[in-house]
Amino acid sequence: MALTLDDVRRVAHLARIAVDDAEAGAALGQLTRVFGLIEQMQAVDVSGIEPMAHAQDLVLRLRPDVVTEGDQRERFQAIAPEVDAGLYLVPKVIE
């Protein structure tokens, strides 16, 4: 199916990336090329095939329920864009 400019804008919004009209147009052209490549997948019959999500056919390893991490706030917040009173600050969130 053909990708539209609306698709590009919708996806850019979902991904929280600002795109102006020129960028959306350019992206549409390139994504259309890429999806041309991707559409080759539709040629193969995949019925009955189990999807492969991982490179290994293994099961999850668990960790014991123990506390191993202490307070690292100072170190972590030294590289934060904006903090106050130990909190990360962001533009006002409206619920």
Binding site: R10, V11, L14, L31, Q42, V46, I49, P51, M52
Partner: peptide, 26 residues
């Protein structure tokens, strides 16, 4: 990111992501 967001988005997941995972197994 745009490609990835698109193939995971509602209505496209099976046609792209699941199909790709099946081909990955092949």
């Amino acid at each position: 990111i745009l490609i990835g967001t698109y193939v995971l988005s509602h209505g496209y997941y099976d046609a792209y992501y699941i199909r790709a995972q099946k081909l990955r197994r092949l």
